[in-house]
């Protein structure tokens, strides 16, 4: 969280002092070959779980991403269960039989044409959210009143616990990648502010807020950590990395996207 504060400070000084201005410009970006994007999540909650296959498009095109149909998608675990998924809607493949269980290791295999993509991910045990509170962070919060959701949870003893949080306000999943780990602070009570500076996540009295806590394995965490670096949830013009890159995927063979096997818990509050 410290990192964010520093970035925000530097940013704020710039905006206030140096009257920067923004405008939309035309840039001639290269045409790229379409690349496969695999999004897949298995949790400890009941299925069916979905694997979504899409492709990249060129920058100038609309945000309508072509789906990949007629692929062979297979998931198996280390307990001997295996399932070939069925395509329900084009590009969406459902797993109906397999059940997510903490401690098991899952393998995803996607074959389209001549290419096969494979990912391995282990589901960690779930961690409960202790409390959800509303904290006022002054001007550091989202636009408006500065109110932000604080999640408190207890990190189990032993390192290598990785967390991802999903913030849902009135049924709408908010943008932003919220993650945490215990590399520096093991086995303690942890607090995390789910502040998203770039989007308006302003809270109002009566809002129904749900937070999901996903426990991830390291490679999936790495994906979300590096996704956050480029997705605008971190920094602004001053803090932009000089070498942005595609997030580090746990899927091989150059596929974009992730295979996330997570244990999920949740808690909700109504904003007073």
């Amino acid at each position: 969280m410290k990192r964010h504060i520093l970035k925000f400070t530097i940013e704020a000084v710039f905006i206030f002092l140096f009257f920067s201005c923004e405008k939309v410009i035309e840039i001639d970006l290269n045409i790229s070959e379409p690349k496969i994007v695999i999004e897949s999540e298995i949790s400890n909650q009941p299925g069916p779980y979905t694997v979504r296959l899409t492709e990249t498009v060129n920058f100038r095109e609309e945000n309508a991403f072509p789906t990949l149909s007629k692929a062979t998608v297979r998931i198996y675990d280390d307990a001997g269960n295996t399932e070939t998924l069925t395509e329900t809607i084009t590009g969406f493949y459902n797993a109906n039989a397999i059940q997510g269980t903490p401690g098991r290791t899952y393998t995803l295999e996607v074959t389209t044409g001549e290419n096969t993509y494979k990912a391995v991910s282990t589901m960690p045990p779930p961690v409960n959210i202790d409390t959800l509170t509303v904290e006022n962070t002054g001007s550091f919060g989202p636009a408006g009143n500065g109110e932000t959701i604080n999640v408190q949870f207890t990190d189990p003893t032993g390192k290598n616990n990785y967390y991802r949080f999903v913030l849902i306000i009135n049924g709408i999943e908010q943008d932003g990648v919220f993650i945490d780990n215990d590399e520096l602070q093991d086995g303690e009570i942890k607090n995390l502010l789910l502040t998203n500076y770039s989007e308006n996540t302003k809270l109002n009295t009566g809002d129904y807020v749900t937070v999901l806590l996903q426990t991830l394995d390291k490679s999936t965490y790495e994906y979300f950590r590096t996704l956050r670096q480029i997705s605008g949830s971190e920094g602004g013009p001053m803090e932009q990395s000089t070498s942005p890159a595609n997030p580090i995927s746990n899927i091989n063979n150059g596929a974009l996207g992730y295979f996330n096997t997570c244990a999920v818990t949740s808690k909700s509050i109504i904003i007073p």
């Binding site: 790229s32 994007v37 996704l227 480029i230 974009l256």
Partner: peptide, 28 residues
């Protein structure tokens, strides 16, 4: 020399830039 996206895709509910090479573009 800067790195700009050469495409885009959708993941985790957001549109994300797709990069193909480092420092392949130029600032104006």
């Amino acid at each position: 020399a800067v790195t700009f996206p050469s495409g885009k895709y959708e993941v985790a509910g957001q549109v994300v830039n797709y990069y193909t090479e480092r420092n392949g573009y130029r600032m104006p």
